[in-house]
Amino acid sequence: MKPHLIAAALLILAPFAAWADEPGSVTTLHKPPVTGEEVYQQICQSCHMANGMGGKGAATIPALAGNPHLANADYIIITVAKGRGAMPWFDDILAPTQIADVATYVRTHFGNNYPKPVTEAEVKAVAGAKTSP
């Protein structure tokens, strides 16, 4: 395993903030997501759905399929790293390289065609320091 993935796996072990009604166990990520596709399947699709179509109830979880915001790499980097509205920040559980890989994955799937890969360096430059849990 590459060193940055070990670091990411360790980060994921950190329990979420106390006080809320929570399980009281530590969840170990047995197989940390490595590729952008794995990050998408293990995190993003919980809200944006396996087909990238999002959902609509009292409010809307935006579709990623054909989402014009994705033309701007900085937009998706900031959104994944720092959150947006109800969507939490993920820079506490994802390393910059994982954020870069999932951004690249989303920008090249679900009908999106922005083939230029997002890099770890871009994530570090755009998203900066980690958010507190």
């Binding site: 969840t27 995190i43 559980i93």
Partner: peptide, 13 residues
Amino acid sequence: AFASGMGAYRLTG
């Protein structure tokens, strides 16, 4: 199950 964090993301998906 009472999952939170990563476990809950994976189960939700």
